[in-house]
Design a protein around this nucleic acid. Structure first.
Lengths: 320, 320
DNA sequence: CTGAAAGCGCTTACAG
DNA sequence: CTGAAAGCGCTTACAG
């Protein structure tokens, strides 16, 4: 039995007749032989790994999305896909990772989470025939799973408006930030537009921008609350930032929701624990869907730049 | 300029004279040539990826550890290491992942988090000369970074005792569970021993065991609190379980810490947010250290089965 | 249906 | 110091 035959057996080739197949299989089992994945990849010209590019992967929302990805990937294909994780914790890492991953044959496909991608990068990917799908970012040329952040902002405004608030603040990421994140800004746009429609203007004095983390959220909320005429409601562009707001309120003796209502965005597990009212987006599911799209692109060459828009819902809890 | 020369230049071989080096480099830059990592791995016989085996990787503590690993790995070596993530969400996946990862050349080394490893598996690893280090698990034959869970249990008991409690409950994982986790049981042992020393017996009626998640923690806490003579303090073997306890208290109208004190273990970010008193273990740092040990093993052949024991501290907050 | 042979893109001992 | 050649462990067209 030659290497070729063994290879055929291991790849379920119909060219092998049963008796030989059994003989080979027996030997394989007997010797505990395992195929060298690297050689296979080199020979085939395609990898069995999928690269996932994710910023701040320890962030609750990133982790939740990844969980969906991992669960789905493990189940696909006879052997499943390996998951090569690339964490982006600094702006310059984005391009590095993109370049590294696009290396020929390194991965069978790319899943890009929350990070913007540029045209020349897409050109490079398509030149190498490397499938890519986006999660929580959008680009007309690539399949993607997203939510309508503008609409999410509207939902938040409507909820706060319905609660009778009129002096409403927004707290989010810097409109232009070094990572190129735009979710926060989109949410702010929808939020502002909905307020506008209700005859309320989102005053610059009631907007605060900073890094998307808890401490910054707390700092910004303090400055919002320290004003002569503080807001009666604060919408934070993410749950982590909202948790920071809650912390500031607690430190300042400001009661929630009596003195100020607060809302977040995402519905990470933390939100439920602290009773935060928020806009829920299906994080886990979106990861699974994105993984499906990527596998479809890899295995069946499905590259249509479909856009899967996931539903957003208001989850009312104790902070409004 | 032959392939050999290009290879030498790209690998910083001292065998290349400057003028040629420059010429090659220029061509490389010009063409945007990138070396095929797969071929390199095959030729060299060693991968540039590290495999990380982790159960429930979306768990707060697992993520925190991973963060340390990722940060450190990215920085090591000229090219850094790729991170192959293997999530274990069901008992049988453990062995599968172990076998998959141990495939020749797949990875340069293995980092095993929280999962027990068996002697025959270690034999296999050593036969293949594949370095491995353990994180949050122990085995005398492998380098590892751990905490002294028994001592952690003692610390918890001492803290509760100092607060004047004598009717103290324990809530943790099943002593024997399908994943082979032993941390909870170790903590219980130290906890029980310290109580014993203070003349207090950890009554079976005050012990509860279940899956290490929040909902189960809540369920178990309810049954603990529903007893005719409920405990005045509950020590949960992890913060997630403790959060479940807090939720049960809230639902039952039991005041914390007035009616019942609660303590957790780990000090994940959640603990700070909800004001949970807990035993802190340096999760992130332990990940970094484990990564260092692994890289040392891979690059310098350092295989001594050292045991790095990380310090544990009581972090007192609002729940005791 | 099976095997010998070439090829995937590197690395490195061996000549020169 | 540089290049031709063999080899890493697979896959697959090509003969038979």
């Amino acid at each position: 039995m030659s290497a070729a035959t063994v290879s055929r057996v291991l790849n379920d080739s119909p060219l092998v007749v049963e008796p030989t197949r059994a003989r080979v299989q027996a030997a394989v089992d007997e010797l505990g032989y395992r195929m060298n994945a690297t050689a296979r990849t080199l020979s085939l010209g395609r990898s069995t790994a999928v690269g996932v590019l994710v910023p701040f992967f320890t962030t609750h929302s990133a982790v939740e999305r990844l969980r969906g990805v991992v669960a789905r990937l493990a189940r696909h294909g006879q052997r499943g896909y390996d998951l090569l994780l690339f964490d982006v914790e600094a702006p310059e890492q984005r391009a590095d990772a993109m370049r590294d991953l696009a290396d020929r044959n390194r991965v069978a496909g790319l899943l890009i989470v929350s990070l913007p991608i540029y045209d020349h990068e897409i050109d490079a990917l398509q030149r190498d025939d490397l499938p890519a799908v986006l999660l929580d970012v959008t680009h007309p040329r690539l399949p993607r799973v997203v939510v309508d952040n503008v609409h999410g902002g509207e939902l938040a405004a409507e909820h706060l408006l319905a609660k009778g608030h009129s002096r409403i603040a927004f707290l989010g990421d810097h409109p232009t930030n070094e990572y190129g994140f735009t979710s926060s800004e989109d949410r702010r746009r929808g939020f502002g537009a909905a307020l506008e429609r209700a005859g309320i203007r989102l005053e610059p004095a009631l907007e605060r921008f900073g890094h998307p983390d808890r401490d910054e959220g707390e700092t910004l909320a303090r400055s919002l609350l320290a004003q002569p005429s503080p807001p009666t409601a604060i919408f934070a562009a993410s749950d982590v930032q909202a948790i920071g707001v809650l912390k500031a309120c607690e430190a300042l003796g400001v009661r929630v929701p009596e003195d100020v209502a607060v809302m977040g965005f995402d519905d990470v597990d933390l939100a439920e624990i602290v009773g935060l009212t928020t806009i829920r987006q299906p994080l886990r599911e979106s990861g699974g869907l994105a993984a499906d799209l990527l596998v479809a692109a890899i295995e069946h060459g499905v590259h249509d730049p479909v856009e899967e828009v996931q539903a957003l819902t208001v989850v009312e809890r104790r902070t409004t």
